[in-house]
Structure formats: structure tokens, C-alpha cells
Simulated scan of single mutants.
Amino acid sequence: MRRKEIGNKVLLAVTGGVAAYKSLEILRLLVKKGINVKVVITRGGERFVTPFSFLSLGAEEVYTDNDQFSIINGSSIHLALSRWSDLIAVVPATADFIAKVASGISDSLLLTTLLASKKPVIVAPSMNENMLLHPATQRNIEILKGFGYKIIEPDEGFLADLAKGKGRLKDPEDIFEEILVELTPKKLKGLKVLVTCGATREYIDPVRFITNGSSGKMGIAFAKVARRFGADVTLIAAHTTEKLPMGMKILRVDKTEELFEVVTDEVKKCDLLIMAAAPSDYRPEEMLHNKLPKLPELTIKLVSTVDVLKEASKYKDNKIFVGFALQTNNIIENAKKKLEEKNLDYVLGNSIENIGSDLGKVILMDRFGNISEFEGDKESIAEFVLSKIFKF
């Protein structure tokens, strides 16, 4: 079940760039999250995408410049839309649009709506590199920043003319994430959160290693959700199957020993540690420096790796520590044992069915033995756990 505590009304604005079709994916993600979306398409935007495309994907209403002088419930449409929305996201934003906003021009429904709005505005530019880097465009972007608009810098990559350069629209999932950051109340503002994620590797030789099936999804979900709630997040990432989030400090590690070194350094600076990484429990006693040839059989002596969470507890003081107990049976008993042995405040118990899945069923146990159960997607699990810890 999703916690319904975020702003839930987004006005998605689409201007006339080749990347306009990517706004359809952003709409899909917003609707899937339970957010109400209305769409404004400029005259240029209609050359690339149609109102029907947005309606078919769940938009409540779609407006064009033909509606500029319409009345909604007794108000001019641009005033009604500016009051209705919790946030306006312009995806993609062309050089022409950016120039007009910077100059205060209001010759379209979108531009008049922006002038009338006091709500947060996200602008995601997309254009040819020469246009983006032109001094006029750079000046105009700075003016928009001065208005308080959040600018999502475009990526480098192949552009519309197949030339490679800066100007490619940011990935829709990244833009979606920035929308959620803007909409979510900052209940963890000022909190420093350290999250670990992914599986470490212990090498037999330069190409073979021991690892586990952790995807890193749970830790990434915690990092995203904590950032949405306003926390200052550091993510220590071992090997993951998921793209790492933007907007936070990312530290990459490979082996368990590296994870230990980085965690024991960073934990001194945090208020909350969420140890979602899955360190390998064993490593070869010796790593071979050359690739081992295929043999009829092979015996490898394994030794224990460092217990990262137990060692980190030496720096606990008044910090809050959250650990994970992945078990094949006796989840509650094993979670309680880990809670006591690792000096944790909370432990999240789950089963192997959760590995790599977008969904999960977990139990949360605190140091007093109180147990709560929750089932949902991993971001919802993260919201549930953080709300339990900080009582919101």
C-alpha cells in the first residue's frame, strides 16, 4: 500500500522538441504512482505528440493553445490550472520556450499559466548542443533559476541529427524522481542518512568470484525515499542490477573489505545507517593472480570476511542503526538474534523470495521486541520503515 502523503497534482507541459514523446513515459510513471496529471501541449508540441496519446495513458485532461481563452468553473483556464497544480513540469523545454519565459512573454496557454503560478516549476531542457550552449540560452536558463525554477540539466548523447553532444533530455525516470522530490514533504530535513546496497564480490582469480543474488533494489529504494523526504543521503553501492539514483553522494565498492573501510569512515558522519548491502560472508583464503585453467576438480579454502555491521557498531553512539536479516526459515527468531548481536535499533526480516523482486513482504522488529508486518513494493517498504522510525 502506498502512503498518500505527497502532493498529487502535476501539470505536465510539453513543448515542441523531438524528445516530446518521452513525456508520455513520465506521464505513465506519475499515473502508476497515483498522481493526478493534467497536460498542456504547446502548438509546437502538437507536431510531435497528440492529446489522445496522453489521454490513453491516464491524463485527466489535455489542453492545447486552442483552449487558451476557455473558462473553467468561472475562472480563466490559466488561472484555474495554476491553482489546481501542486507542481508544473515542462518536459521537454525548448530554447524558444526558455527564452519566452525568461522574457515574461505570455502568448500561449502554458506561458500564461506559468506567469500566474506560485507553485514549484521543473524545467527539463532538450535541444541541439549549439543551441543549448549559446550565450543567450545559458543566460535565459540562469534567469529561470533566479525565478526559483529547478532546471534538470540535459545529458550528453546522440541528438536528433545523430550528432553526439550535450542536449539530450534527461532520462524520464530521473525526471520522474525529481518531480517526486519536489512533491514530498521534507520530514527528514537536516538528517544525514547513510545507506548501503548491492552484493560484494570475493575473487578466486582475476575473473572468478564469490557473490550472492542481491540486486541492490532495497537499498536504492531507501536512498531515494530518504532523499525525497529531505535527508542528506550518502549511498555506498556494491554491485547492483539497478541504475543508481542521482542527487546524492555515491561511493562505489567491490569487495567486503572495501565496504567495511568506507562504512566505518562514513558512519561517523551520519545520523541513520541503513545497512541493506549484502556482503559476502566468505572469501578465498588466497586470491590467485592469474586466471585459473579449467581443472577436473578444485578445492578452495574459504575464510570469513569482516562483519561490517558489527564493526560499524563501535561508532554507534546515539545513531540509529537498521539492519537486515535475510533468512530461509525462522525469520523472527533470526531477526531477533541479529538485532541483539549487532546492537541494532531495528532489523528488517525478509525471505529469499524478496531477492531481485520489485515487491516484498517484511517484518520490522525494534529493540524492544515490537513487530510490524508490511507488504508492498520496495519504495513503499522504505516509506513504511522510515515512518515507523521517525513517527510520521
Rank of each mutant, 00 (worst) to 15 (best):
K361N: 14
I381L: 15
V225C: 03
N73G: 02
I98E: 05
L273H: 00
L188T: 08
G58P: 03
L259G: 14
L111K: 13
I274S: 06
F392G: 07
F222C: 12
A226H: 02
I143W: 02
M131N: 05
L194Y: 05
Q327K: 12
S75V: 04
S103A: 15
K186E: 11
F97R: 02
G247W: 10
V322G: 09
S215W: 07
L29I: 05
A199D: 02
A116M: 03
E286K: 15
L191E: 13
I88A: 05
P206N: 04
G167Q: 01
S372A: 10
K342G: 07
L191T: 15
T200K: 12
L359F: 13
M1W: 01
V123T: 03
I363Y: 01
F390K: 13
E173F: 04
R28Q: 09
S357Y: 07
I151P: 00
T200A: 11
P185E: 01
E266M: 08
L191S: 12
K314Q: 11
I371F: 03
L115G: 14
V233G: 07
I355S: 07
H78P: 12
A124Q: 02
E129Y: 05
I381K: 06
E177A: 10
N350M: 09
T200W: 10
V207R: 06
S380P: 00
P154W: 03
R283Y: 07
N343W: 05
L11E: 12
R83V: 02
R3Q: 13
T94G: 08
L251T: 00
R227F: 09
E178R: 07
N329V: 05
P51W: 03
L57M: 10
E156N: 07
G219M: 02
E257T: 11
A238N: 01
K319H: 09
F321D: 13
Y149N: 06
G349T: 01
Y203Q: 08
E286A: 14
D67C: 05
V306S: 04
N318M: 02
L272A: 12
I250T: 09
T241H: 04
Y21A: 03
K166A: 13
V14M: 06
I204S: 00
S117E: 01
E257Q: 14
S351L: 15
K145D: 14
K192G: 08
Y346H: 11
Q138I: 10
A278M: 11
S380D: 15
A124I: 04
G58D: 06
N66R: 08
I143C: 05
L386A: 12
R227V: 09
F368R: 09
L191K: 15
K361E: 15
V101P: 00
R208D: 00
A231S: 11
D232S: 02
V62W: 05
R83G: 03
E202R: 07
L12F: 13
V121A: 01
M131I: 09
D96K: 09
I250W: 04
D107W: 07
I105N: 06
P125I: 00
L326I: 11
I88Q: 02
M248D: 01
L359K: 14
A59C: 10
V306K: 12
I105C: 12
A13I: 03
S85W: 08
R227T: 14
M246S: 15
F158V: 06
G45C: 09
V37G: 06
I143R: 12
R252S: 13
P154E: 09
